[in-house]
């Protein structure tokens, strides 16, 4: 492994979630999965709801992300601007499951079809599923 490192910052409108030197990073972009290593070309891309895998000194850390923008700079600095981001260990699994169930209930049982914003519901379900998956993944390890 090279001794070059990436400097990663994950930030949301509310706070900066993560800032550290890392070896590599894997994200889900809107055109597919992407792994960034040091000396990547400058790139700006949009992120989907998904996971960010951060690898440093052989350790893997996962972050859940509700979409956002990824910026890779020429000087090995990487910035993720996310609407919202959580470390896998910070995720409240019960709450995520509950929210998931609630969203699905509304989707399946709503009698007032006109008033349901299906796009938003689909998005909510995707977000919560993402959290649940990530936590379960972390627990297995």
């Amino acid at each position: 492994m090279s001794d070059k490192k990436l400097h990663l910052t994950i930030t949301t409108p509310l706070r900066t979630v993560y800032t550290n030197d890392i070896d590599q990073l894997t994200v889900t972009t809107s055109v597919g999965e992407l792994t960034i290593l040091p000396d990547h070309i400058p790139l700006i891309t949009t992120l989907e709801i998904g996971q960010v895998m951060v690898k440093n000194d052989g350790h893997e850390v996962y972050y859940a992300i509700d979409g956002g923008i990824l910026e890779v700079r020429h000087d090995n600095k990487v910035v993720i601007l996310s609407d919202r981001s959580e470390n896998a260990s910070e995720i409240d699994i019960e709450r995520a499951k509950e929210a998931l169930k609630r969203a699905e209930d509304i989707k399946n049982n709503s009698s007032d079809v006109d008033n349901v914003d299906y796009n938003k519901l689909e998005r909510d379900i995707a977000k919560e599923l993402n959290r649940v998956k990530l936590t379960e993944k972390n627990q297995r390890r």
């Binding site: 809107s30 400058p42 700006i44 891309t45 949009t46």
Partner: peptide, 16 residues
């Protein structure tokens, strides 16, 4: 940002 490549395109990034 002249040197940057954009994916999928610049408009999509602006929309976000």
């Amino acid at each position: 940002f002249a040197l940057y490549s954009f994916e999928p395109n610049e408009q999509e990034v602006l929309n976000k």
